[in-house]
Design a binder for these strands. Structure first.
Lengths: 197, 197
DNA sequence: GGTCAAATTGAGCGATCACTCAATTTGTAA
DNA sequence: TTACAAATTGAGTGATCGCTCAATTTGACC
């Protein structure tokens, strides 16, 4: 009894699985169960476990970029859009994601050594994301939302690190009110960046 | 040709291996090579891979706590001690560790599901560490280094998250000068906490 | 209904996984 | 030197790993 497969749905299922379990701990048996595809079909469609993982990383990045752009469009200012994204659309706050952790952050700390193609894809997506933050801060500076003296790349670095730290804390903490406070704090820091140093 | 083993040395080797490769990606073959112990000896000495991992987590926590205490003792104030620790003794800055990432942070993002004993041990050590930070901030407040209104637990949460974010960034970044700047920024924030909010 | 290329199937490949235990070697003490 | 408990050895356990491919089923066109 063969079944015609929906590659997009299968990719979403794989993304959820990799996101929650990690790369090494996700077996092909897990992927078969989650996607409903037999090993031959999985390999015909995606090539290998590593390639499927890379596709999952890309899928995730696209989805989160779209969420960020949407937050940007519905906001009155550039920094407000960024803060809104953090407060309502980022995995750490949205409550929709399988884990309250950016998939790229988790993947970075897990994979750092091993498959070369995965590391390269991860670097590409992370750099791309940080450059996007830098562009946003540059845009904010151009529109007068930031002092002329501010350094968009530095702000982008700090935001990347701050989001990663928040993700880490959200994953392990049981006290969700503390997380809420930390999210609010970060969003506030984005809205009104420190001028010191 | 039998060899008498040094359990402490073997544990150190295991720690380095788990720290760099992660739990799931470290095989018993890897551990055999690194410790020089055959599987039977490893099991006689440590019980199982999971137990050896837990012991590694404990060993790491002990070592880093000792480094923090030392920084505390050689400093003129509580907050200065904490900042010095971050700048010179934490894995992210010390340059001695196998990776510029706190082992507990990496382990948390990798393991989060799976072996129950590991998760419990990880939670225990992370909570213990955060409570230690809170004690330090409380001590600083008692000694007048912080305003009476400051919340030691909140500061401890934020420091935990900030260190995790820094670790994440240090692991992936190629630009070490940027990392140096971020470490200095964090140490500075510890020395002179923001009074806002 | 007949034909055929494309998609799906799933048993099974060799490799590796965490782990065991009977056999051997070692250190100690009489 | 002998005796014996403790430590070490490493071949081997069954399970599972990522992955392949010949056989089967499907859907599109005539």
């Amino acid at each position: 009894m063969n079944v015609t497969h929906d590659k997009d749905a299968a990719l979403d299922a794989a993304l959820t699985l990799f996101w929650t379990k990690g790369y090494a701990s996700t077996s092909l048996k897990d992927l078969e169960r989650a996607t409903g595809m037999h090993p031959g079909s999985l390999y015909a469609a995606f090539g290998s476990k590593a390639k499927l993982y890379c596709l999952s990383l890309e899928r995730y990045t696209q989805a989160i970029s779209a969420a960020r752009e949407k937050a940007q469009e519905t906001s009155t200012s550039v920094l407000e859009g960024l803060a809104t994204f953090i407060e309502h659309a980022h995995p750490v706050s949205a409550g929709i994601a399988p884990l309250p952790v950016c998939f790229l952050v988790k993947a970075t700390l897990e994979t750092c050594q091993g498959n070369e193609a995965i590391d390269a894809k991860l670097s590409e997506l992370l750099n791309q994301n940080e450059m996007l933050f830098a562009d946003i801060y540059q845009d904010a500076a151009d529109k007068g939302e930031l002092p002329k003296s501010s350094d968009p790349k530095r702000l982008a670095r700090q935001l990347t690190a701050d989001l990663a730290g928040l993700c880490f804390y959200a994953l392990r903490a049981k006290d969700s009110s503390a997380i809420g406070g930390m999210i609010a704090d970060l969003a506030d820091r984005v809205r009104r960046p420190r001028l010191s140093d």
